[in-house]
Amino acid sequence: MIGIQLTYKAPETLKEALDLVGREGHQILTADQSLISDLKKGVPSLHTLVSLRKIPGLSSINIDNGELRIGASASYNSLLTHEALNQYPALAQALATIPDPHLRHHSTFGGALSHGGRIHAPVLAALMALDASVVVLTRDNDTRLPIHYFSQNGNRVLLPQGGLITMIVLPEPAAKSSAYLTVNQLAGRQANHGIAISLTQSGDTLDQIRLILAGFTEQPIRLKNIEEKLAGSSLTPDSIKSAADQLGQDELPIHNDRIPEGYQRHLAGVLLQRALKSLTKQTVS
């Protein structure tokens, strides 16, 4: 039962949708149903839902010019059954942490950015590790935002008023390795802790690395300082340990207060080290 009165609109074109999304109290419904629980708890400022379900093309997944283009209304399940997914192990492994078929069918990539929340954290982390970009349509233009825009120091950043996410774009994987690691025990409770990693190497040297922690903060958080420190170096047991030791308050501002901060910081360190070791086994063994 939803306690607030709602108006529901389902425009059939992007132009009609753009006319609506800029208005006060209007919320996009991308076919992602995670919003429903929030509605039951009450969202005082919301009075109109703008569903994208009738706009053609938003659920498509295709490869264009080497890029994987995922429509904002594409479900997690539709990507899980897409042959391109095996090019992106981090994303495949992040999706695998969501076994509930309802969530796979009714969680969308646009919803991950529009609604946030713990369900979407692993997928968002993987997208961030893979340097995805987000196609945002406004009345004036069609721009691409880096996905990192949506997370500032672990806090969720909303899309500017009037914008409409139509697509998430993953660059060609090239020689990049990636993975998503999680801790299963906590899956039954509130937090879904995990880490997404991607990297490219020249011999033993790390060229580029992305490290994204999920579940510790409101939105997945990029460990930028650690990335910078590791880039251009070879991984050794000492450098891996040193990276984990960097997970202080500045690098990882813990937002989840139901679990002791000390343990979360410890767990983040374990995940970080495991992630680094998992992709660079030959280097550190």
Binding site: L29, A31, Q33, I36, L49, H105
Partner: peptide
């Protein structure tokens, strides 16, 4: 598709 009907608006 498996769907939890308490998590979906009827209009959807």
């Amino acid at each position: 598709k498996t769907t939890k009907s308490c998590q979906m608006l009827a209009v959807e």
